[in-house]
Design a binder for these strands. Structure first.
Lengths: 191, 191
DNA sequence: GGCAGACGATAACATTTGTTATCAAATGCA
DNA sequence: TGCATTTGATAACAAATGTTATCGTCTGCC
């Protein structure tokens, strides 16, 4: 699982093994809630197999706003970093195989690792990249129609369209399930 | 202008003065374009007086997506950091007094300053905070009606409502100017 | 002072999107 | 296998929002 990341980290084997031993492997069924609204996040997850959605309750309707797949790490970032009650629920969509690490271990690793200039730069790059991704996603809400957002999604993240139930995608795109059906139907009709 | 920031930086006066001497003061009229779409951003601005909007052209309509006021720093972040052609235009709304610094100076300062643990943590915090702000703004597009977004804006950033022409606010909220007028009119009527 | 352009309100109409209800197909599970 | 649940399509209607056009006011500027 971790081998694929090994060469990005200029650490000796002892440190490296020490770090990856902090992770624990679990297997969970679909619809497992990994973090509930209002909880304070203590775990960071990495997905070996499966997928996860992050959503929140908006006046009784659930609104999905992120999807994660294999090899991605997942947490309610704001809650994990700042110890705020999580505004979101983290939940598996498919039966999944996950690795998790406790926040106190993660903090310790980060504190050590950030002294290494190269890793620090990687870390800062990741933070920038995350902001850019949000900006981009946000842009598309301002400028694109729901139909265009759906087309973008198929183009840019086909995994989501293929693996995720459609009603989750609808709320991710900011439309009702009925309307997403209409959008798909119109697209097929035009061909 | 820079005194207000002085105590946050554990630097000796020589370094500090050296850094702030990299900034240059300019006065510009309203509707001055500081960075155009497609340009690569070389300057970071700090606003002493005035306000700035960041917008982009979407099929002939301009869409505003950020406002900045006194004491805030402004750049097309993605362009400034990654040297990409800017997707956005940076433009003054009011006649403004600005301080700017060239990217090559900023990079040098950052490289020096990031070795200081305390400043590095501040820097990382700013990056996190920026991401959280985007998430929050984005959330409100998914979950709130345009009316609610307008109410939030009045509550959270009254400066914008007070100082910025309404048609810019409309595109910032993701509605047409006509609809924003309707929203305001309904709110007044209900009182 | 007067003029051009920017700004904002409003009306009428068009289009998009949401809501509710119903049905069919697929899926999971006992 | 068979039943309950989930998922998705569609229709009919309601509500929200966009578009175009018109008008009045304000503002900066010569």
């Amino acid at each position: 699982m971790f081998d694929q990341f090994r060469d990005r980290f200029p650490l000796d084997d002892q440190h490296w093994n020490n770090y990856i031993n902090c992770f624990e492997r679990i297997e969970v069924p679909a619809k497992t809630i990994l973090l509930n609204e209002g909880e304070i996040s203590k775990k960071l997850f990495i997905i070996e197999k499966g997928c996860i959605r992050v959503w929140f309750n908006n006046n009784g309707k659930d609104v999905t706003f992120q999807f994660f797949f294999e090899n991605q790490s997942v947490a309610s970032l704001e809650s994990f970093v700042k110890k705020f009650p999580s505004p979101v629920v983290v939940e598996t969509i498919e039966p999944s195989v996950l690795w998790w690490i406790h926040k106190k271990d993660m903090d310790r690793i980060l504190a050590e690792v950030i002294e290494i200039a190269q890793l620090r730069d990687q870390f800062i790059n990741v933070l920038f990249q995350r902001t850019f991704d949000y900006m981009k996603h946000f842009f598309s809400f301002i400028k694109d129609s729901p139909t265009q957002r759906y087309l973008n999604l198929m183009e840019e993240k086909p995994q989501i369209v293929q693996r995720v139930p459609q009603h989750y995608i609808a709320s991710y795109l900011g439309v009702s399930t009925v309307h997403l059906s209409r959008i798909k139907s119109k697209l097929v009709h035009k061909k």
